[in-house]
Amino acid sequence: MTDRVYIRPIGLVPGPQSEHGNAIRLAGGMVYASRFAVILRREGQVAERWLAAPDTIAEAMGHLPDTVAADAEQQWSNLTIAHPPLEMGARTVRLDQPQVMGILNVTPDSFSDGGEFMDKPEVQREQAAGMVEAGASIIDIGGESTRPGAKPVWEGDEIERVVPAVEMCAAMGAAVSIDTRKAAVMEAALDAGATLVNDVSGLTHDPRSPEVVAARGCPVVLMHAPGAGDDLHEGGDYSNVVFDVFDELRNRRDQALEAGIDASRILLDPGIGFGKSLADNLALVNALPLFHALGHPLLLGMSRKRMIGALSKEEGADQRLGGSIALAMRAMDAGVQLVRVHDVRETVQARNVWRGLRDAALTDFADLPG
């Protein structure tokens, strides 16, 4: 008999005052949680579900079998962890509020902007500088498309594509991440000035990747994708997509720890759109607060993705700004620390308004008695 437990925040509030203080600050950010579901899963099926508030969570967890009690305690502790800033070379990226990561694709076949910045240094520079000026905390550079059906790129070609872009962005003082699943590309990009690895395979594609990240001591994003080979979208068969992705991210995190990667350097990404149906993606977005129970900062990339078109008249990638902003805001409401986007200026503006509302919410109840 295999039991697993999940503590899912299901009641989010703008400030603790609205619950007379009976709320926790979720992951040290600007979102508060006041109601939780303690879920016991047995042999892949939900066996029991208890509802609790912070002052009754101990009672709810008291119903759990001894086999999962320690895990439940750890998840509850994880939900309140205040994550330290990301140290990215000379740049420090705070994680106590949402940050925006800008996308710079130097590929000929990206689903959104394929070829627009390929072999065009001045266009790349203008795009990167614009994102930094607009408020991007990190520029994420990728040289291999990961859209469904995209052909793998030889690591030598990928290095040729990304290194000049990394050097250019680092020279302008930007914090740079490298979006790759190949160890040799990671090494070349880190040597060129990147300070974070964003691996869509969760360090599973290249057996050398974990040791590279561990040796460099850089932050790393572990994303969930079901495919074990070149096709990351292959094999998306879930009994419950939310719990299955949670469990797999935990496994990949544990493998990273075993490889010597420091826990404070690990970020997690549920992998929206990778081997997942529209229903799967919607379920994951609605369940985002659960993933804080793993105890690591979260990154989410939903900008211009296919799910937006599926929900809105099959509009093309260049017509999905509204949906991208809506999803970014949903991520912020869930306490996600990093949103990865194409449209930096618009997303930063939305984030700033969101942050203003959150700041104001902390004094909304200041004039109430007691």
Score class of each variant (00 low, 15 high):
Ala52Leu: 05
Val68Ala: 04
Gly62Lys: 10
Pro65Val: 08
Ala60Leu: 07
His63Arg: 15
Pro65Ala: 08
Thr56Tyr: 07
Val46Asp: 14
Thr56Leu: 07
Ala60Ser: 12
Leu64Pro: 07
Gly62Val: 10
Ala53Glu: 15
Gln45Ser: 08
Gly62Glu: 10
Ala47Met: 05
Glu43Asp: 15
Glu43Val: 00
Val68Thr: 03
Ala53Lys: 13
Leu40Met: 02
Glu59Ile: 10
Asp66His: 06
Glu48Cys: 03
Arg41Tyr: 02
Pro65Thr: 10
Asp66Gly: 11
Ala52Gly: 06
Glu59Arg: 14
Leu40Pro: 01
Trp50Lys: 04
Leu51Asn: 09
Ala60Val: 07
Met61Phe: 07
Thr56Ser: 15
Thr67Leu: 07
Leu64Cys: 07
Ile39Arg: 03
Asp66Arg: 13
Gln45His: 10
Ala47Ile: 01
His63Pro: 00
Arg41Ala: 10
Met61Val: 06
Pro54Asp: 09
Arg49Met: 13
Asp55Gly: 03
Glu48Gly: 00
Ile57Gln: 04
Val68Leu: 04
Trp50Ala: 11
His63Tyr: 12
Arg49His: 02
Val68Asn: 05
Thr56Val: 06
Asp66Gln: 14
Thr67Val: 13
Leu51Ile: 08
Pro54Gly: 08
Glu59Phe: 04
Glu43Tyr: 02
Leu40Lys: 01
Glu43Ala: 12
Ala60Asp: 11
Pro65Lys: 08
Ile57Trp: 03
Leu40His: 03
Thr56Ala: 08
Pro65Gln: 09
Arg49Asp: 01
Arg41Pro: 00
His63Ser: 11
Leu64Ile: 06
Arg42Cys: 05
Gln45Thr: 13
Glu48Pro: 00
Arg42Phe: 02
Glu48Val: 01
Pro65Glu: 09
Glu48Met: 06
Glu43Pro: 00
Val68Tyr: 06
Pro54Tyr: 11
Thr67Lys: 09
Ala58Tyr: 00
Arg42Ser: 12
Asp55Pro: 03
Gly44Leu: 06
Thr67Ala: 15
Leu64Trp: 10
Ala47Glu: 15
Leu40Ile: 02
Arg49Ile: 10
Glu59Pro: 00
Leu64Lys: 08
Ile57Gly: 04
